[in-house]
Amino acid sequence: MSQENRLDKTTRINSLFDFYELLLTDKQQMFLKYYFHDDYSLGEIAAEFSISRQAVYEHIKRAEQVLEMYEEKLGLMEKHYRRVRDLEELKSTLSSSGVTHEYQSQMMDIVERLEAND
């Protein structure tokens, strides 16, 4: 796997983890944190827990599959990023819409409240 693909995968897993962490088992949470957040190697994690590298690899792979399954079924991450894109588009449209400054300010306040609720 290329460095860029590894970085993309790490970014995706970390994002999914942010959304679905509490739906994972304690062991899955711990192994993913060590591997993706703290950048431990499989060998370092195996030594820490006195298990084989293969066992660590299987725990991590299974946790990744679980995260992907939750996203496939619930779509929370995609909905979040879509909402962020839509809010940015709305802000841009408001800025260039030609409406009065007062109305534009009111609308931007609403957008900011929506962003704060994210």
Rank of each mutant, 00 (worst) to 15 (best):
N5D: 09
K61F: 10
A63D: 06
L94S: 04
L76F: 14
L32G: 02
A116H: 11
D38R: 00
S2T: 10
F19Y: 06
G75Q: 06
L67D: 04
E89C: 07
E102H: 14
L90D: 10
I45C: 05
D118L: 15
F49M: 05
F19M: 11
E78K: 11
L32W: 00
G75R: 01
I60W: 12
I13P: 02
A46F: 04
S52T: 15
E102L: 13
N117C: 13
T93E: 10
M77W: 09
A116V: 07
M107H: 05
E21M: 04
T93V: 12
I60N: 03
I13E: 00
R85K: 15
G43Y: 00
Y81S: 04
T100I: 03
L114K: 13
Y20K: 03
E78M: 05
M77G: 03
F36H: 00
V84N: 03
I13D: 00
D109S: 11
L16W: 00
K61Y: 12
M77Q: 11
L76H: 09
F17D: 04
K79Y: 09
L23S: 01
V66T: 13
S50T: 15
E71C: 09
T25W: 01
I110L: 11
E72H: 12
I110S: 04
S95I: 12
Y34P: 09
L24W: 01
L42R: 00
K79C: 04
Q3S: 07
F31Y: 14
D8W: 10
L67F: 03
R6S: 09
T11Q: 07
L74I: 11
M30C: 12
L7I: 14
E48S: 06
Y35W: 10
L114A: 10
I110C: 05
S41A: 04
L42Q: 05
D38K: 00
L24D: 04
L67T: 01
S96V: 12
Q3V: 11
E88K: 09
E88G: 03
M108N: 11
I45L: 02
T100Y: 04
Y34G: 04
I51S: 02
N117F: 15
S50C: 14
E21I: 04
F49R: 10
Q54E: 13
H37V: 14
D18C: 13
T10A: 02
H80F: 15
L22G: 08
E112N: 15
L23F: 00
N117H: 14
D38V: 00
S105A: 09
N5R: 11
L22I: 13
K79A: 09
L74D: 08
L32K: 00
Y57H: 07
E78L: 07
F49H: 13
K91C: 06
A46Q: 01
R83A: 06
I51D: 01
L32N: 01
V111N: 07
I45Q: 01
S15C: 06
E68W: 11
E72K: 11
G98N: 08
L76V: 05
E64A: 03
L94T: 05
